[in-house]
Amino acid sequence: MTEAVDFNVARWLEAQQEAVLDAWMSDIVSRWKKNYLHVVDTEHLHLQSRQLLEEIRKLFVENPNEFWEPTPDSKIVVLIRSLSTQRAKQGFKPADSTFYVLSLKRVLWRRLLQDRIAENKVALATCLAMIENVIDRLTLLIYEVYVETRERLIAQQSLSLLELSTPVVRLWDRVLMVPLIGVMDTQRARQTTERLLEAIAKYEATVAILDVTGVPVLDTSVAGHIMKTIAAAQMLGARVVMTGISPDGAQTLVKLGVDFSVVTTRATLRAGVAESLLLVGKRIVAVKDAP
């Protein structure tokens, strides 16, 4: 009995390390090779996993009895964080990313059950509980980091989209153009208004073309935003010509009862450009002796 209680997981793991690593790696590689063949560098994976296994062994040495709680700056947490971030960026599915440590648990359990220790139920239970506690916490950590990484990516993308989609273009002297593309929410509308007003002031523009061809649906909220933008532009002395309302959009706006009668509208951007140039006393004419 006493010799079984003395059984040391850390020492056991040290002796088993190579065999565990081999079984673990063959399990992982066989699963990952299918989907991530091009991103999995087997040599690097081996190195990383050996390091992780070593850290887990150290954990067992440091916490032989009590349950381990991860601290944010411990070496193992940093290690798990870096590899989970890396995998999220490489496009691993969350299940495949967590499978990494779950596979290690399976390997350790199988080997433990085959060991002499399995005869002593109390010692075996203690070992299994220790392993389970560590692996479970690592699994949670991997998942957490995975979601964090993806969320950061999404936040970055929506920021880039916001920057992409509200350009104010100078079409001619005193004529600006704002092509609205995509969903107009409150944030986008505010940004568009700001940029348009800045540009009106900067170029002393007197006409601004607001093209809504790229707005999927013109509802009262979008219409309200556009009205406010137009009112603000007019206060700076610029007239707004609105273009690109589709036939369906026009019918819908009438049904909604949105009153755009105070705004100059043209069906196409082409007509809008002609109208705007006229407003600043310009006209597009054909070159007589063009080739």
């Binding site: 649906v217 013109l218 509802d219 369906d248 819908t252």
Partner: peptide
């Protein structure tokens, strides 16, 4: 039809907003 679909889409947007 295209117009009906546009009507529906707009109404849904209104309600969601």
């Amino acid at each position: 039809g295209r117009t009906d679909a546009y009507y529906l889409a707009t109404a849904v947007t209104e309600l969601a907003t």
